[in-house]
Write a protein that binds this DNA or RNA. Structure first.
Length: 635
RNA sequence: GCCAGCGUAGCUCAGCUGGUAGAGCUACUGAUUUGUAAUCAGUGGGUCGGGGGUUCGAGUCCCUCCGCUGGCUCCA
């Protein structure tokens, strides 16, 4: 007898080695039809996997959060199967699932999106056939024999241990795979190929370039359609597009990857930095500024010349080598080292909006998200060991305050010591536990990325989440055990001894350019009033009223509102349409009635119009919205 | 840098298998003086990304360079 414990605690008895399918059927036929896999004592297995001993069992239905990944992995197999049918000489490599779908890296002739239709058609045949996925455990020798013509699979198998190797087949297709899979191909209800790219075998440029074909799959056409709508929405919000319509910035061939900001872009830029400066001052930061071009000797001292050279722009001045800074830290070190420091001075929180240049590969440039010149909202905090966790905690709380002002939620990731590192075990221990202690007090869940820290210290990354649920790494807090050493920084402690300070680098916006890009997409160009480059547009109803409208405009400007007036002899409808397209939050129409009554009619971007609002009331409300940094206009 | 796709007026796009470039919006001019998402008419605007080639003839075919987009790699 086998005793199966179900998640609700109930126990079912089976005479001999039941499968997940048997268990499902014993409960209901409907449940069985929706089951894709089964979790046995915490491990997810195929539904037809025999359960040989008493176990805790959880049936995974299509509704389960684990189901989607299992099915997408099966979809990757189906795609590979279809491709092998169409491209006989293709060789498969790896085909994992990713965040919103799957891909398969295949050694084959280059394909383009036009080929998707026929691949998808072939996939549909396989799906319609409802071919069962069959697992076969196989010896290493046999596996190598099976793939003797295939260098990729041979390489993969040779890294596996004998006894752990399994193959999965559907129809005449077989692939090396750990599993699990859905019971049959018919579970792949909605599937679509999304993109192709070249990808190197084992991510190494020296290796062959493979075709990476991406796809996504869902349990229903409805979900697939919703996902496609999401992609559409993201496209509509694309900051490059919105930035052009709103006249915020542009790119020119004369300076690839280096944005030009227009007047309206600068309005937002300055608002972002005004806010930033005010908050930093309140949080006990000083602001500094270091030069753009610094002597090679400094970069040699900091280690950048050795480790970061290929990303640096260099130049010669008076026969000496210089580099345009790719990071602000070495300059910051010089400022700290300027004079003897006392423990009483610490912590020193020195911020710098530093313009850095990095020579990124041409292919990676992407709007404001990936550029070659950008401003970091940097700060270097110098402190004693005892101050580590207070300072880290301070930065976390500070960042939260900043992000929440934009309505951005975020999550944290801690990266620990990598394979290659400098410093002693003890230093790493102190540093890492300092970060962890702060995270614990901060009391927000965080993910640990083992061995993902910088070689010079552990770090905490802050990933914000935008209105579409996409995440972006913005903030980072990096403990640096290298630079204070290299620059021989010190402070005098209370026993008159020289001590090396602990230093962190931290950014909150990250790159101001990129943060602005994220905000554009987050708000879809409809900035909250305090951030809007144009807050109010005045639409005079006819030419006669223009002088009065100008007076109102001057009045608004006196209050520091960002206001424009549309004096064109166009229909009101057209001017309204224009203002809506330009996403100006407050569209104010002025005609004889308004002049008479000292009122305004105010249209907001939702298309609603309020007539007869007293001018004074309007001004007060605008002031309130701006000073409260309201995310939603309260009017 | 690599793979794939793309590059026609300021913007959005049309231009079939090669036969000497087109629309809407914008801009400008005139009329209209407008009450909440495009008033009407007229005018201007392009060495079809650059260069080279094939051809009697190239926006269209080929080569090459540049740029853009999606990925790879890297990262803020």
């Amino acid at each position: 007898m086998i005793n199966i414990t179900l998640p609700d605690g109930s126990i079912k008895e089976f005479p001999n080695s039941p499968t997940g399918a048997d268990i499902a059927k014993s409960i209901s036929e409907g449940l069985f039809r929706n089951c894709v896999a089964v979790e046995i004592d915490g491990e997810i297995k195929d539904l037809n996997c025999k359960i040989e001993k008493d176990a805790r069992v959880r049936l995974i239905t299509t509704k389960d959060k684990d189901a989607l990944g299992i099915m997408r992995h099966s979809a990757a197999h189906v795609m590979a199967h279809a491709i092998l049918c169409l491209y006989k000489q293709a060789k498969l490599t790896i085909g994992p699932i990713i965040e919103d779908g799957f891909y398969y890296d295949i050694d084959m002739e280059p394909v383009s999106q036009e080929d998707f239709l026929k691949i998808e058609a072939e996939m549909q045949k396989i799906i319609k056939a409802k071919l069962p996925f069959a697992r076969k455990e196989i010896g290493k020798k046999e596996a190598l024999e099976f793939y003797k013509e295939d260098p990729y699979k041979t390489e993969l198998i040779s890294e596996l241990e004998d006894g752990t190797i399994s193959f999965y087949s559907q129809g005449d297709f077989t692939d090396l795979c750990r599993g699990p899979h859905v019971p049959h191909t018919g579970f792949i209800e909605a599937v679509q190929l999304t993109k192709v790219s070249g990808a190197y075998w084992r991510a190494d440029q020296k290796n062959d370039q493979l075709q990476r074909i991406y796809g996504t799959a869902f349990f229903s056409q409805k979900e697939l359609k919703a996902y496609m709508r999401f992609l559409e929405e993201a496209k509509k919000r694309n900051h490059r597009k919105v930035g052009a319509v709103l006249d915020l910035f542009s790119f020119h061939d004369e300076a690839r990857g280096m944005p030009f900001f227009h007047a309206k872009g600068m309005e937002i830029w300055n608002t972002l930095l005004d806010f930033w400066r005010k908050e930093h001052k309140k949080a006990g930061y000083i602001e500094t500024k270091t030069p753009l071009i610094l002597n090679r000797k400094l970069w040699e001292k900091s280690g950048h010349w050795e480790n970061y050279r290929e990303n640096m722009y260099t130049t010669k001045i008076d026969e000496e080598d210089y580099a345009i800074k790719p990071m602000n830290c070495p300059g910051g070190m010089l400022l700290y080292g300027l004079k003897p420091r006392s423990y009483k001075d610490l912590p020193i929180r020195a911020a710098e909006i530093g313009l850095v240049h990095r020579h990124e590969l041409s292919g990676v440039l992407s709007g404001l998200f990936r550029v070659r010149a950008f401003h970091q909202d940097d700060a270097h905090i110098f402190m004693t060991e005892a101050q580590i966790h207070d300072e880290i905690l301070g930065v976390l709380r500070f960042a939260e305050k900043i992000y929440s002002t934009f309505g951005l939620d975020f999550h944290l990731e801690l990266s620990t010591r990598p394979e290659q590192f400098i410093g002693t075990d003890e230093q790493w221990e102190t540093a890492t536990s300092g970060l962890e202690a702060a995270l614990k007090i901060y009391n927000k869940e965080y993910k640990i990325n083992e061995k993902d820290g910088a070689f010079y210290g552990p770090k905490i990354d802050m990933h914000i989440e935008d209105a579409l649920g996409r995440t972006w790494q913005c903030g980072t807090i990096q403990l640096d055990m290298s630079l204070p050493e290299r620059f021989d920084l010190s402070y005098i402690d209370n026993r008159n001894e020289k001590v090396r300070p602990i230093m962190i680098h931290r950014v909150i916006y990250g790159s101001v350019e990129r943060f602005l890009g994220i905000l554009i997409e987050h708000f879809a160009g409809r900035f909250p009033l305090w951030l809007s480059p144009v807050q109010i547009i005045i639409l005079p109803i006819n030419d006669e009223i223009i002088p009065y409208a100008e007076k109102v405009k001057a009045e608004f400007e006196n209050k520091n509102f960002k206001v424009e007036i549309d004096k064109r002899t166009e229909s009101l409808n057209k001017k309204v349409r224009n203002a809506q397209i330009n996403k100006i939050p407050l569209i104010v129409t002025i005609g004889a009635k308004e002049k008479e009554a000292d009122t305004l009619s105010v249209r907001t971007l939702d298309g609603k119009v309020k007539y007869g609002i007293a001018k004074k009331e309007f001004i007060d409300k605008v002031i309130d919205n701006i000073s409260d940094k309201n995310l939603k206009l309260i009017f």
